[in-house]
């Protein structure tokens, strides 16, 4: 029911367009620093752990770069970063819309003759589905870069071995798979959080509960969707 209203015809496209640009900045660009820091550090840790575990003389050291790239592209950037975004962006959306609900701002939109669900939720969904693939691509790049810096600095592998590793056995479909997951996760994060915020009743305590609930549901749904998409696309 809510989704039907969300995808209803906008009252004025220019207002929605403006709102989408605002949400791209708020939800996407606003998360860039967090994603950058986490990606660099996680890339570094994945590299060191890989090198630590590759003790067999039969495994070449360039496998460190290869393993880091595959871990980051297939799982860390699309799934773990989306889980982090579910916490940051999801709770933000649920509490923002929840507060608008309890302070009658949503009623005010309705009384003006505006489809409040469409005006508040659609721009967030569109913005996240548009900007998250860019964020995840940046996360992949920074993760691999973090791995390189830590791998070389710690002596886990040489610069040549790492770069040779990340160039080896590259399957372009994996990027397509990751970005497909990202777009679906972006839809889950925004729509589930918006749902919990939109149907908040009561006061500040309930807004907090809605925010927590949205993070829990987002996390579970992302993990389930991850399994289903992986089964459908990789197996």
């Amino acid at each position: 029911m809510l989704l039907k209203r969300v995808f209803g015809k906008p009252e004025k496209f220019s207002m929605y367009y403006k709102q989408i640009l605002y949400e791209i900045d708020s939800l996407g660009i606003g998360s860039l620093w967090l994603i950058a820091i986490i990606s660099v550090f996680m890339g570094g840790v994945i590299t060191i752990q890989s090198a630590y575990n590759f003790t067999s003389p039969f495994i070449p050291l360039y496998a460190v770069g290869l393993g880091t790239r595959e871990s980051i592209v297939l799982e860390f950037s699309p799934t773990i970063v989306s889980l982090i975004l579910a916490g940051k962006v999801g709770s933000n959306i649920a509490s923002e819309i929840g507060t608008m609900r309890i302070s009658e701002q949503i009623d005010a939109l309705e009384i003006m003759g505006i489809n409040s669900a469409g005006y508040l939720i659609l721009p967030k969904v569109v913005a996240a589905m548009f900007i998250n693939p860019f964020l995840i691509t940046i996360s992949m790049f920074l993760g691999v870069l973090g791995g390189y810096i830590m791998g070389v600095a710690s002596g886990a592998c040489t610069s040549y071995e790492y770069i040779f590793g990340i160039q080896s056995f590259f399957i372009p479909f994996n990027i397509y798979y990751s970005l497909t997951k990202t777009v679906i996760f972006a839809f889950i994060i925004t729509s589930v959080s918006a749902y919990h915020g939109y149907y908040t009743t009561g006061g500040a305590l309930e807004v907090g509960k809605a925010s927590t609930r949205s993070v829990v549901y987002n996390s579970i749904l992302i993990l389930v969707a991850n399994l289903v998409i992986t089964q459908l696309m990789l197996v």
């Binding site: 009252e11 004025k12 207002m15 608008m100 302070s103 009658e104 701002q105 003006m112």
Partner: peptide, 27 residues
């Protein structure tokens, strides 16, 4: 219809003039 809510229900993220202009922007 215009409505004055008990708590005002002004949009927090908009300035006073943006709040007043909102129905004009929309309709």
């Amino acid at each position: 219809i215009g409505m004055l809510f008990q708590g005002g229900a002004l949009f927090d993220s908009l300035t006073v003039e943006q709040n007043v202009a909102f129905p004009l922007d929309m309709f």
